[in-house]
Amino acid sequence: MNQTAPSAEVVAAATARGYWSTVLARLSRDKLTVTCALILLGVLLMAICAPLLAPYDPFKGSILKRLLPIGSPGYFLGTDELGRDMLSRLIFGARLSLVMGIAPVLNALVIGATLGVIAGFLGGRINTLIMRTIDVFYAFPSVLLAVAISGALGAGIFNAMVALTIVFIPPIARVTESVTTQVRGLDFVEAARASGANNFTLIRVHVLGNVLGPVFIYATSLISVSMILASGLSFLGLGTKPPEPEWGLMLNTLRTAIYLNPGVAALPGAMIFMVSICFNLMSDGLRAAMDVTQ
């Protein structure tokens, strides 16, 4: 009855260790990836516990305390152009910045992977229809497409996230389609079909099981780009609106302060840089750890 159980045991016996524990073991030996993962976990915790960690109200400023430099008494990272505490705003800023960077990639992963699996598995006219439509979006450089869509939709967090989702659907769909097409042609899929599996079972068990891993790794590599683009849209005034704390928008409003207080003005960008580089390195580490050919 249960056909998967014995085969899993056979595989486990043959390799002495399951696939995921191999991946975990490899990851734990990769110091750089572990460090990045810990930093990102820290930023995530910081975002979740922002009200507990922030020493001041991120919205409330004082005209008397405008643009205090880094290291001022009581204001560890100084204050911004409206006298609001930078540390508190950076802590609260992690919330919107992370959501705006990660959510579009997750949405695009769901939509793009669905389109890619359908196109790759069904092939034929449906494949042509989906993939040629996606080709159109490749005619636009990603920054231009994001700016054009969110510019036409109008400024706002939701519109910016819609724009970024549309930017990331085509590459994810393309990767999914190419992996699915490869998997579909493999012998074990034919064997499953011959033994009576219907399309739904084939996709659920055989295709998704083999396609989701690579597509997921690819999607993690997009998070870094998404963080930069999302903050970039806010920087242009197309994402979050003031006085909301968001790193890209903070960078924009502090631009006028670079002559008075350059250190403070550069802080939000340093946060974006740190998170983005950690996502990039973690994605590389995951790719190496999950690569079975190694």
Partner: peptide
């Protein structure tokens, strides 16, 4: 190379 693709270039411009 990793830093180059991870840096928000608009921030680098400000720096």
């Amino acid at each position: 190379a990793v830093a180059g693709v991870s840096v928000p270039h608009y921030w680098l411009g400000m720096v």
